[in-house]
Structures are given as structure tokens and as C-alpha cells.
Nucleic acid binder design. Structure first.
Lengths: 245, 245
DNA sequence: GTCAATGACTTGTATATACAAGTCATCAGC
DNA sequence: GCTGATGACTTGTATATACAAGTCATTGAC
């Protein structure tokens, strides 16, 4: 059995919700019916339902059948990490211009953020992100060497680093984002096309694997008249979604 | 059995993590050990662990014991809305100074954000938020009249507006936050104690009820050297949390 | 000393069963 | 017609068991 049963059940239910076969407001089949349909016991079926509940797709309640709440599952993690995905969600065409990639020892503050010894090698990138050909964000990323090495061979003007790393099996698990505002320095000003001192939205991000080991540190600066960061969250589900522009 | 066993187990583990008895980075007891300790079978124990995983407190991985990732469970919706709660989560003492409360017709852009006719009355507040007595954030809030009326009688220097509204049964259901950066205007500069033109983090927020009707529009400006907005999200769970400072 | 295989231990998946607790339509009694 | 009890159905909780699959330290061969 390659894919677990509860994943199969969850995927099939997701498909039905997405296709409208199970419309918003409709009741799901009972657990017993799902058990019969998938020749499963209650365990995997309940596990699948719990997954959909977490994604904000269905409701819960003892004695009541679950009801379809939403047609599109929230994928907060992906949408928070990938500028490319966020841009596409909002209908813009994302682009990028790699300015620099280097193998070097990071500044002490960056080394500390990544929990590295001060003289450890890292892979650092400076990349300008575009929305519809317009400079929108400047990202300064630092990767631990083991992960960053593979980036040296990648085509970094082609697509999403996040998607590239995922495809290579890198275990990206959690991210911590801090937002504040800074005045543009000379590099920011030149690449983003704003005056020195102009206010920029800064997002600093630490990404870790599932054991809590830091993988990536990033300092992203947004030109506020071109790109902003938007997120939506609701009370009932833990779902949250992010977008740019 | 008043409270389910899996909740008891989850609560006890949460307590140990919060108290530092299980420090960040430490491994949890194995499922078998927890079963013995709580005289439970694996079901409830695994259910408790799944809950903590959803809250972003612990990691997962076949064959590996879970590791403590974070000490404070994520409460996304509350923590996104309440500056007071966010401050307390991070150990600061929040404060506020109400500058102005008025019943007036809002600017066209604000009326549009709230889906109101241009000449509709709203309740507007200007309030300075403090962290440890220091100016940290300036909020400009606009409430639809039905909700805002009750704020005219409230003690707005006392506590959280969010908590006050919830207690009065207001159906706060979803919120959309947009982050960008602006230069401080004269009002911002004076109240926050920064030079005119200094970069400020701006959060614009539209809060709606469960039917999608707008309730509140807010323009919050953070002094970036005193307060930032931080959020955490993980891949496996939908947990997200916001904090300041 | 190095390296690979072994094996104990751990989490992930799945089944079968049982009872508690909540929902809801139906039906009897008034 | 209205009300309340009944009972079927449903989800929530819990146990016991079994095997698959991944991790990790120890052991043994070289």
C-alpha cells in the first residue's frame, strides 16, 4: 500500500467538494457510509475527516453530520513561503532577477538567527522579485550549506526556490515571519527604484525543518506602492491564507 | 468521565511544555510511556499529540520521538485581532491612551472599505497603544454605527475593545489584514515620538461577521523599533500565531 | 578505525469492538 | 394542534491488537 488509506479518502472527499459534487452547505455521507464505500474501518475515515476539518473545509459536531463549509482548502504554509504562488493567486505575473549568489560566512546576526557557529559557510542570494515586470521586492536569503549547495546548480531565474527545494526533498516544516518597516538603503533604493530613505515593508523569515533545525533566513523588502502582504483568517477554522499586491 | 482523556493528556503535556519541564528542543516521552503514565491506550495519547502538533507545539516523524518546538500554543484568530493579547503573550505590559472618539461620516475610502454609502455615520477612534509605557502603535479604527454605538459608553482606556465586543455578543468572524510601510505624517510623528517621514509598519484590517458583513476598518501604524508583528506557521498544521515586539 | 548489518525501539497505519452522548424525526398522549 | 417521550442514527471517546516503516545505537566483520 503506497499511499495510506486515510489520505486516499481525504483526497477523494476534497475532490468532491472542489468539483461541487458536494456543494457548500451540503452534508457529508455518514462515517458508516464512508466506511462501506472505501472498505475501511472508522479509524482512517475519521482521520480523513479530521484533516478536512483542519483545512477549514467541513464542520464538526457530535451527533450531526459534517457540513461542507468551503470549497478550497487553505494552504497557509505554501502561500506564506512562496512569492510566486502568492503572486499567481492574485493574478499577477511573477518574475525574478538574480543579482548575486555566493558561498560565504554570514554576518554575526544572521549566523545567530540560523543557530550557526560564527564562521560557518552559508549560501547567500540577493534576488529582485518582479510583479508584471515591475520591481516589487528585494530578497536577501541565507541557506545553511547542506541545503544551499544544491541551489548553486539550479536555474534561479526560472521559478520558485521553494518549489525547487520541495522537489529535492528538503524538509521545510515551519516558518516564523516578522514584519516591520525600514528606510531604503542605497542597494534597496537602486534595485527597487525608490529614493534612499523611502519606507519599505520588511519581512524577516526563519524557516526550519520538522526537528526545529534552521534551514533558511531571509530579509525581504517590499516596495509598498507595488506589493503588500495580505492575509485572511477566520474564527472557526485555523485556516489562514496570504497574498501579495 | 467529565473531560475526555485525550484532553487531559494534552493539557498536562501543554503544562509541562509551558512550565519548561519539557524544554524547547527536548524529546517527549514515547507513546508507550505516556500510555502507562495516564493508564490510557494509544488512541487518546495519539489524539493528544495530534492536538499539540496542530498547535505547533511539537514536531512529528515516523520512528522519531516528537520534539518540543515552541512553548506557547497558537491561537490564530484571537492573537491576530487583539493587541492586548499579543502583548501579553510576549511578556509586555500593554497600555492605551484614547486620543479621540467621534461619531462622523468617514472618508470615502474608508466608507468603501466598509461597503457603506458615502454619507453613513460611523464611530471613529484614534488610540495610542503602549508597550511598557512606551508609544508603540497608533490605531485609527472605524466601526459601523450599530456596533460602534456601544463603544461610546465603554471605558476605552481600560482594556481590549475586542474582548469588550465579544462579551457584548458581537459576531466577529473573519479578518483580512494588509501590511505595508508608510512615512510618518505629522500626527503619527507627534504621538509616536518619531520624526516626520520615519518609516512605520502599517496594518490595515477589515473585520467581518460570519455573513461577510463588514464591522470594523482599522489603520494601525507601528513604530518599528518598539513593536513588530510576528507570526508562526507550520506545514503540517494550519497553526499560525501573531505577536508584537 | 571504518563501515555495514543487526535489532530494539518508535511512530504511522489499520482493524474490530464497545459504549457515551448528541441530533432529529416520528409517534403517542393530551 | 401541541408537547413530550421514544428510538434510530450519528459522531465522540476509548480499548486492544497487529503490522509496516523509519530511527538509532550497538555489534561484528574487515
Amino acid at each position: 500500500m503506497t499511499t495510506p488509506l486515510h489520505r486516499t479518502v481525504a483526497a477523494e472527499l476534497r475532490r468532491r467538494i472542489r468539483s461541487g459534487e458536494l456543494a457548500i452547505g451540503a452534508s457529508l455521507p455518514s462515517e458508516a457510509e464512508l466506511c462501506r464505500e472505501f472498505s475501511a474501518s472508522r479509524g482512517p475515515v475519521r482521520q480523513a475527516l479530521a484533516t478536512l476539518r483542519e483545512e477549514g473545509l467541513i464542520s464538526a459536531g457530535q451527533g450531526k453530520r459534517p457540513v461542507v463549509l468551503d470549497a478550497v482548502p487553505a494552504q497557509p504554509f505554501e502561500s506564506f513561503l512562496s512569492f510566486t504562488l502568492r503572486a499567481e493567486l492574485t493574478g499577477y505575473t511573477p518574475g525574478q532577477r538574480l543579482q548575486e549568489i555566493a558561498l560565504r560566512r554570514p554576518e554575526p546576526s544572521v549566523a545567530a538567527a540560523l543557530h550557526l557557529e560564527p564562521d560557518t559557510l552559508t549560501v547567500q542570494l540577493l534576488r529582485l522579485r518582479l510583479l508584471d515586470e515591475q520591481p516589487a521586492m528585494l530578497e536577501r536569503m541565507t541557506y545553511v550549506e547542506a541545503v544551499g549547495r544544491s541551489l548553486l546548480d539550479a536555474d534561479l531565474n526560472a521559478g520558485s526556490i521553494y518549489a525547487y527545494l520541495l522537489a529535492r526533498g528538503v524538509d521545510l516544516h515551519a516558518a516564523r515571519h516578522t514584519f516591520d518597516a525600514v528606510a531604503a538603503d542605497t542597494t534597496d533604493a537602486e534595485l527597487l527604484g525608490v529614493p534612499v530613505g523611502a519606507p519599505l515593508l520588511r519581512e524577516r523569515r526563519l524557516t526550519t525543518d520538522s526537528s526545529g533545525t534552521p534551514i533558511e533566513w531571509s530579509d525581504d523588502r517590499y516596495r509598498p506602492d507595488v506589493a503588500t502582504v495580505t492575509m485572511t483568517n477566520t474564527r472557526s477554522s485555523n485556516a489562514a491564507r496570504a497574498a501579495v499586491a
